[in-house]
């Protein structure tokens, strides 16, 4: 589904990604973790071309992201993305947030888009909030709307960029619950997160990044049981010590 082949990226002279290679099969859930500044958010944003890369290529369902001839808006329209800071459109109601891209990008009718939006809103438990604006919802609610918004485009896979790290602790679980449910339904997911509980529960593989490189790419059993690299061992001992 997603093939990342030898990606390198520089900001000026500074190299942020070094020769990253991995793949996500259909139905797989991959967790990407690592210390801040290790390039995990940058890598996931390369997958739908939100960040450009200078070397290597990424294929989503066989379509090259790096090829200048690729219709990126079309590719992105079926790759769902959820951001750390939600990024709902603040001037639109929740209903409009869920329907606008369906109408403008997929060409669905307003009624069809609203119906699909309401169904997804119901699924994330926020049907009552449909008429509100994003600023009137809590962080956890906003992030659940953001997930529903991404799903409204019927994506073939979903990218999550630290979806819970901007949330108050008591709101983390309501978002993780939605993600766990998605994973169990067979959605292909690539998730940048520090939620190791989530990784243990639903991930197939864990990728550990450090200083722009993929240091470890292992099944979750191997990653949590016997991480090969010393850097990953240190990281795990730090975040799992409490």
């Amino acid at each position: 589904m997603i093939e990342i082949k030898n990606i390198s990226k520089w900001y000026g002279a500074f190299q942020v990604l070094t020769d990253c290679t991995t793949q996500v099969e259909k139905g797989e859930v991959i967790v990407v973790c690592g210390p801040s500044g290790s390039g995990k958010s940058t890598l996931i944003k390369c997958v739908n071309g939100l960040e450009v890369f200078q070397q290597g290529d990424i294929f989503v369902n066989g379509t090259s992201v790096g090829d200048p001839k690729t219709n990126l808006p079309k590719l992105r329209s079926h790759v769902g993305m959820v951001f750390q800071h939600f990024e709902l459109f603040p001037h639109m109601t929740i209903t409009e947030n869920l329907s606008i891209a369906q109408v403008k990008v997929l060409g669905r009718s307003k009624d069809e888009a609203n119906e699909r939006g309401m169904k997804l809103l119901d699924r994330v438990g926020l049907k009552q909030q449909a008429h509100k604006h994003p600023g009137q919802l809590s962080g956890g609610q906003q992030q659940r709307v953001a997930i529903a918004r991404a799903l409204s485009m019927d994506p073939i896979c979903m990218l999550f960029d630290e979806p819970t790290s901007a949330l108050d602790p008591e709101m983390v679980n309501e978002v993780l619950d939605v993600m766990v449910q998605l994973a169990q339904e067979g959605m292909t997911m690539m998730v940048v997160t520090h939620e190791m509980g989530f990784a243990r529960k639903v991930s197939n593989r864990v990728i550990f990044m450090d200083q722009g490189s993929i240091v470890e790419d292992a099944t979750k059993e191997d990653f949590f049981g016997k991480p090969r690299s010393e850097r990953a061992q240190q990281f795990l001992s730090k975040i799992l010590s409490h």
Partner: peptide, 16 residues
């Protein structure tokens, strides 16, 4: 940059 990325990620073109 977040709003721009969110718009693009939904499949909007840059003018959209």
């Amino acid at each position: 940059g977040g709003q721009r990325m969110a718009g693009l990620a939904m499949g909007f073109t840059l003018p959209q």
